[in-house]
């Protein structure tokens, strides 16, 4: 059974179709890359999947359960969690407290939550930052904090929205390694990314969106050799 099925999902804002008729499914343990030019509807799709917007049409099925209309907190409890393209640290809380907020969805005990949080900080290699204020971190560490906090909710599916955006190449490489480490632990991930080289390296399959519609889907090799993708990204004159 696929862990996530997107069936004919559309999202309209007034007359504008931010997503129209998008369908694909994900198997347990895979990394799905989600790419497309700016405004293609990638983040809107994330919002539809995680309960921030109800889809206007279509269904989101997670682990066999229909998710339409569920609120984000319920979605998180069921095991699906997202990070934010524009990072959202809880600025006046320490790094470990930030991650603890994530862990507390699974426990009421602060001590257990702290242990769980420290474990995730180790995964993102930020144990030494535990007592720093989250608001004072540089962007690279804020992005990793987002990931640690999401992981602390013990998800079955992790949705990463441009975790490499705005990072330098060394930091991006670190994130790529992190995503592969998380995959090695068996966690399923959906990744929105602009950096083509990065997305090629980590994805098992890639879905390409343009103007809200699914253009194509396939392995990284299939996608880069697809004429429609080349047109959409580079413009027809380059073809």
């Amino acid at each position: 059974m696929p862990i996530l099925e997107i069936k004919n999902v559309s999202k309209f804002f007034g007359g504008l179709a931010a997503n129209s008729d998008v369908s694909f499914s994900m198997e347990q343990g895979m990394i799905m890359g989600l790419i497309g030019p700016n405004g293609a509807g990638k983040t809107t799709l994330f919002n539809c999947i995680t309960g921030y917007y109800p889809p206007s049409k279509g269904e989101v099925i997670f682990n066999g359960r229909r998710m339409n209309g569920l609120q984000p907190d319920k979605v998180c409890k069921l095991g699906m969690v997202r990070t934010w393209q524009k990072v959202r640290p809880l600025a006046k809380l320490s790094v470990v407290d930030n991650v603890m907020v994530g862990a507390l969805v699974r426990t009421i005990s602060l001590k257990t939550a702290r242990d769980m949080a420290m474990e995730q900080l180790k995964v993102v290699r930020m144990e030494h930052r535990a007592d720093f204020l989250a608001g004072g971190l540089p962007i690279g560490e804020r992005k990793k904090l987002e990931v640690a906090r999401a992981l602390a909710t013990q998800p079955k599916l992790l949705l990463l929205d441009e975790v490499m955006g705005g990072l330098n190449p060394a930091e991006s490489d670190e994130i790529i390694q992190l995503i592969l480490d998380i995959k090695a632990q068996g966690l399923t991930q959906m990744v929105i990314e602009h950096d083509m080289k990065a997305i090629m390296r980590i994805s098992d399959r890639i879905v390409v969106l343009t103007s809200g519609e699914k253009l194509t889907e396939g392995t990284p090799q299939e996608v880069v050799s697809n004429q429609d993708v080349i047109d959409a990204y580079l413009g027809e004159s380059h073809a």
Binding site: W84, L93, M100, V101, L104
Partner: peptide
Amino acid sequence: HSKLGYYFQAIREDQDAAHSLGIH
């Protein structure tokens, strides 16, 4: 010093982030 306090502060700092982390 309880889960409540953590959740309250998470809501104070960023309501949308708090919502995505399973806080009703």
